[in-house]
């Protein structure tokens, strides 16, 4: 499927999927699964768990396809909401919370030199480590706002809280992130 302006919406692809179109499944997977994987990885700090959640959320999407009400909810908003709920469930089950950030592989640009790759690695690690110091809700809000670039009303719908609560969580979360990273400017190549 091409990425022209006439590319079908996620809603339309779900209808095609429910009608048996195998290409619709492939396109929805290409569009949505990396997003689910990225956000779950950032929120959980555990790549293996994030992959499980990605498969689970996509399975729920396939099952929801025949009953999907077009135009009632954005597929991506629904996806993020399910990912967040699954992440909360996972965190509850993991007694000791997060897993080490060394379990999170970074998508480093292969065109970079060895030194640049090393620095990009250390920046990814530092950001993930700082994210893991936030509370679960702060981390979810910061990831959705500042990495996934969702709007505050969308985040409010996903997290089932008010827009004001989202603003508060993201502001406090970002301050906490800055504080956690403050001493690492030179190490990260920003000195």
């Amino acid at each position: 499927m091409s990425h022209s302006q006439t590319a079908p919406t996620d809603d339309a692809l779900l209808v095609l999927f429910a009608n048996g179109d195998p290409l619709a499944a492939r396109e929805l997977t290409r569009r949505l699964a990396p997003r689910a994987l990225g956000v779950a990885t950032r929120v959980l700090g555990d790549r293996a768990e994030a992959e499980d959640i990605t498969q689970e959320v996509m399975m729920r999407l396939w099952r929801a396809a025949p009953e999907w009400q077009q135009g009632q909810a954005k597929v991506s908003t629904w996806l993020y909401r399910v990912v967040m709920n699954l992440c909360i469930d996972r965190k509850r089950r993991l007694k000791h919370g997060s897993v080490g950030i060394e379990d999170v592989p970074e998508p480093v640009d292969p065109a970079l030199s060895a030194a640049e790759k090393l620095q990009e690695h250390s920046r990814w690690d530092a950001l993930q480590a700082a994210l893991m110091t936030l509370s679960d809700r702060q981390r979810q809000a910061v990831v959705l706002r500042h990495i996934e670039e969702l709007s505050n009303p969308d985040i409010a719908r996903i997290m089932d809280i008010s827009v004001e609560a989202v603003e508060s969580l993201t502001a406090r979360g970002k301050r906490a992130l800055a504080k956690a990273l403050a001493g690492q400017r030179e190490e990260l190549g920003y000195g």
Binding site: P34, L37, P107, D109, W124, L127, I147, A178, L188, Y190
Partner: peptide, 17 residues
Amino acid sequence: TELDALLDLARQKEPDL
């Protein structure tokens, strides 16, 4: 400033599936 640069870096690439 540094935080925004880091978040920009995180935004630039989606993880490979």
